[in-house]
Amino acid sequence: MPNKAIIHSDKAPKAIGTYSQAVKVSDTVYLSGQIPLIPETMEMIEGDFAAQATQVFKNLQAVCEAANGSLKNIVKLNIYLTDLSNFPIVNEVMSQFFEQPYPARAAIGISELPKGALVEADGIAVI
């Protein structure tokens, strides 16, 4: 595979399974799912859904920066929610991290996430 590189940031949670934080192939970065872990402690952030969503976007931002990019480079974002009633909150939090034009996005309701997280997000960035 041409120009394949593993992306890692100490400012984002280390992988808790058999995956990399991100993989860059040419100018495309495939970001693994981030849950609201605090990188320094690997513990879930305390607080409500908004606090969890904020930490998820901070973690994605750190991985994008490790790939020499930013959240602005994300072209596709998938957000996984254990409770779809939090959809308006995730929109509000996301607006603090992204500007128009927004990336393409899916919001997916699921039954549970690792470590009891309420939200997870992954994406694809072009840098």
Score class of each variant (00 low, 15 high):
114 P>E: 09
98 F>Y: 02
108 I>G: 06
51 A>M: 04
103 P>T: 07
2 P>R: 13
64 C>S: 04
65 E>W: 03
85 S>C: 10
86 N>G: 02
3 N>I: 05
113 L>H: 05
47 G>P: 00
82 T>Q: 06
94 M>E: 09
50 A>K: 04
25 V>M: 11
10 D>P: 05
61 Q>R: 15
101 P>R: 02
108 I>Q: 06
94 M>R: 12
28 T>D: 05
119 V>K: 03
99 E>H: 10
70 S>Q: 10
127 I>G: 13
75 V>Y: 03
55 Q>Y: 02
23 V>K: 10
70 S>G: 09
91 N>M: 13
70 S>A: 08
101 P>S: 00
25 V>W: 02
56 V>T: 01
105 R>D: 07
33 G>D: 10
89 I>Y: 07
64 C>W: 01
54 T>P: 00
29 V>A: 00
25 V>Q: 12
76 K>H: 05
81 L>P: 06
17 G>C: 08
5 A>V: 14
7 I>L: 01
80 Y>Q: 09
85 S>E: 14
12 A>F: 10
93 V>A: 05
48 D>S: 04
115 K>I: 15
86 N>M: 08
114 P>G: 07
16 I>K: 15
58 K>A: 06
94 M>Y: 08
5 A>M: 14
113 L>S: 03
49 F>A: 01
32 S>R: 10
110 I>R: 10
63 V>E: 09
95 S>Y: 03
51 A>E: 03
120 E>I: 00
50 A>E: 06
98 F>W: 00
59 N>M: 05
43 E>D: 13
11 K>Y: 13
53 A>I: 02
121 A>P: 01
69 G>N: 06
32 S>W: 10
15 A>D: 09
85 S>L: 11
5 A>T: 14
44 M>W: 11
80 Y>N: 05
116 G>I: 04
62 A>I: 10
49 F>M: 10
25 V>L: 12
109 G>A: 13
61 Q>M: 12
35 I>W: 04
28 T>N: 02
11 K>D: 14
17 G>A: 12
63 V>S: 06
68 N>L: 09
125 A>P: 13
2 P>N: 13
110 I>D: 04
109 G>E: 13
121 A>S: 11
106 A>P: 00
16 I>T: 14
18 T>L: 15
101 P>Q: 05
118 L>K: 09
68 N>Y: 11
32 S>M: 14
51 A>N: 02
63 V>Y: 03
56 V>L: 08
56 V>Y: 01
2 P>D: 13
77 L>T: 02
24 K>L: 07
62 A>V: 08
15 A>F: 06
50 A>H: 03
48 D>L: 03
105 R>S: 11
83 D>I: 12
4 K>P: 08
12 A>E: 01
27 D>C: 05
101 P>A: 00
4 K>L: 15
96 Q>A: 14
18 T>W: 13
111 S>M: 06
3 N>T: 12
24 K>R: 14
83 D>N: 15
81 L>I: 04
36 P>Q: 04
126 V>K: 15
16 I>N: 15
54 T>Q: 11
88 P>S: 06
51 A>C: 00
5 A>P: 05
101 P>T: 02
